[in-house]
């Protein structure tokens, strides 16, 4: 885990992970450690962990769908100011087609299609950006505190 900034009002932690489903537990543990360190409200912590894990899962499932044995790594950066939490994801997978990112209709009960819905329910904003080199995708989630 790298700490980018630790002044009182602006905290930021970043860590990278192998792009694999087996990394999702490590992503959650990293997130829990950071939220504890940032003293985020306990009721909110597990919701945020779920949103982060769903976004990381989408990288594994979609950006690297055709490359299950990749050795690429994805990075997660959690930044916190007095009023807002920002969670950024960086990966080098297939570029995200924003128009295709949608959840299933919630009353059409069937397996799949809920990850993006959970992220939308938990976070205030979701922005897909082109990543600065060497990254291809940069997803930024924010939540007012």
């Amino acid at each position: 885990m790298s700490t980018e900034s630790t002044n009182q009002n602006n905290l930021s932690e970043k860590k990278d992970f192998l792009v694999r489903s087996s990394s999702l537990k490590d992503v959650r543990n990293f997130s829990r450690e950071v939220f504890e360190k940032f003293k985020i409200n306990e009721d909110l912590r597990e919701e945020l962990v779920l949103a982060i894990a769903e976004a990381a899962q989408n990288i594994v499932k979609h950006a690297y769908r055709d490359f299950p044995d990749t050795q690429d790594r994805m990075a997660v950066r959690i930044s916190c100011s007095d009023k807002e939490l920002e969670i950024a994801f960086f990966d080098k997978g297939k570029p995200v087609e924003k128009s295709k990112v949608k959840h299933r209709a919630i009353d059409d009960v069937k397996p799949g299609g809920l990850g993006t819905f959970f992220i939308q329910e938990i976070m205030d904003s979701i922005k897909f950006k082109e990543g600065d080199k060497p990254w291809i995708n940069n997803l930024v989630l924010t939540k007012k505190l």
């Binding site: 999702l24 959650r28 962990v49 769903e54 899962q57 799949g112 809920l114 990850g115 819905f117 959970f118």
Partner: peptide, 9 residues
Amino acid sequence: YMDSSGISV
């Protein structure tokens, strides 16, 4: 803990 994949199961 259960995520969307678990809910799908």
